[in-house]
Design a protein around this nucleic acid. Sequence first.
DNA 1: CTGTTAGCGCCTTCAT
DNA 2: ATGAAGGCGCTAACAG
Lengths: 327, 327
Amino acid sequence: MRVTRRDVARAAGVSETVVSYVLNANRYVDKDKKERVLKAVKELGYVPSPAARALKGKDAHHILFIVDDIVSEYFGSIIAEMERLVVGKGFLFSLASDRGDSSFVDTVCNWSFDGIIIGSATISLNDIQRIIGTGMPTVILSMNEYPRFHGTYGLVLTGLRNGTHEVMACLRRRGRRRIAFVDSFNAAGRPVDRSGYRFIGYSECLEGAGEIVIDACVGSADLRRKLAQAYEASRFDALFCRTDRMAAESLLALDAMGLRVPGDISVVGVNNSRIAMYTKPRLTTLAIRKADVASATLELFSGIKRYAGGEVLTVQLETDLIERESV
Amino acid sequence: MRVTRRDVARAAGVSETVVSYVLNANRYVDKDKKERVLKAVKELGYVPSPAARALKGKDAHHILFIVDDIVSEYFGSIIAEMERLVVGKGFLFSLASDRGDSSFVDTVCNWSFDGIIIGSATISLNDIQRIIGTGMPTVILSMNEYPRFHGTYGLVLTGLRNGTHEVMACLRRRGRRRIAFVDSFNAAGRPVDRSGYRFIGYSECLEGAGEIVIDACVGSADLRRKLAQAYEASRFDALFCRTDRMAAESLLALDAMGLRVPGDISVVGVNNSRIAMYTKPRLTTLAIRKADVASATLELFSGIKRYAGGEVLTVQLETDLIERESV
DNA sequence: CTGTTAGCGCCTTCAT
DNA sequence: ATGAAGGCGCTAACAG
């Protein structure tokens, strides 16, 4: 059955308090007793109940990741990296997808997390503020330009803006001048978010050329239609796509339109996801350094706990442009 | 700050106990008071602390998913489905990847989950038994033939075995006779697991033809080499791959070998993941009904809580063969 | 150096 | 129909 501190205490022949002291290493404990405790802990496989710890306001070894697309492997790989970094320490990672309904924030606020990662581009500013307001260490994986929130929190700038500059430069080097921006699928089919770093980076590199934007499409058919339309109107010679998935979809669409990649058109995606390896031609893609994101985030969590003066701790990361066959 | 039951009680002008009674609906409470409580709850955005509930052994609204490959979108889509089913009820989904070290099981056992899903093919039988032994509702997403564990638990048979029969039949209809089985990547490069339903289904349909097996490869280069070798030896005319990813990798390898798909060789994957849409040719794939997996799992959780007589509750699901261009 | 004690927020008898 | 009180497992003063 469940093994509690009491069991350990009995097995080691000490009082329950001593067990706590040993495990939290916050009191000097007799060498001998200490060893007995450690031994008992190991033998019984004792792990302090996170629920009880949480109740006392202590670390719960619990990290929450708020995402907008659970299926995206982007989040999965970051979690995998973080897990690697804390393996053996008994951490638990949870996922919450914000599906527009703010009520999930109530839920979030009543758990105790050691860290909350906001990796969703669609979560409302108000909800972000509420989450930061709980006092739980929060870091924003910033894909967008955000206002300054109130309180202490972390900001990981993944480098998409500069990375996009690189993409654009690469495209230029290949002689591309009429570069279009392709947004992600979105059930609502709304216009591209101009505060996203990808788009900002894109528009900063237009060098006088007019912007060509394919707003969020509802599905493959819609994309196909809009792409054809845009080609008719603008004769674009390159596509910078918000994600690899969109780049892959675009590849299909272009193929259907009889356009050759990279012969006629260059295509670039973002994320270096598995998909990018298997398309034909293989995708050139802007890779976020996921391992860096993971370690930076973890460090920010402890940083936030130390300084709580209301400042925002920022980490700026680099990206890597992975050139494959599609440019 | 954090809003507790006490705040609600004060706001509604009742005692804390009444608040509990209203929320748990396990006592008759005066209509009027009840409404005041509900109103206060809504206004304050009160959510009972899961930590405190867990400590009392109540539902924690917390579900754990144990996986072997976090990056795989398979698990992500099942979680997404489950989330849809319980949206608004304040559920939290957590991920644990078993990385061979059993110590994570100690951790798992000391949390309180309302449900634990075992979706890992590599977790040890011993660990599974320990998890079931905690008494927390456990369901196994069964990709393999498993022994009978001790205790009450759920088993979701995703239908891979019959599904594989369909795949083989489809391949036969296309005139394929020398069908090879391609295992997943695996750092250890070990031989294919013959207790997996995919392999079982495969070997049941050999009809006298000898089996052709590509054991787990360490990476793309390894796969390429083994595939070439196997082709030399057996002149296979079809590949049934453990996952879409392996099918995609195989496509690349075959292309490098100068073999045409589906002209010379047919290729089939499993999972209907996004990848399958973007390869060239597009992948024929065996789709697991993820939405059914999600709902069956949730139902099993409540089933397990009701009957606790030591039986195993089983659900048998169907699959769908999605025929695209690669066969 | 170690044990005793008072909660953390909640649920559940037990009284009323 | 409702309130008081004990305790889930743990931590952190507070006394020895």
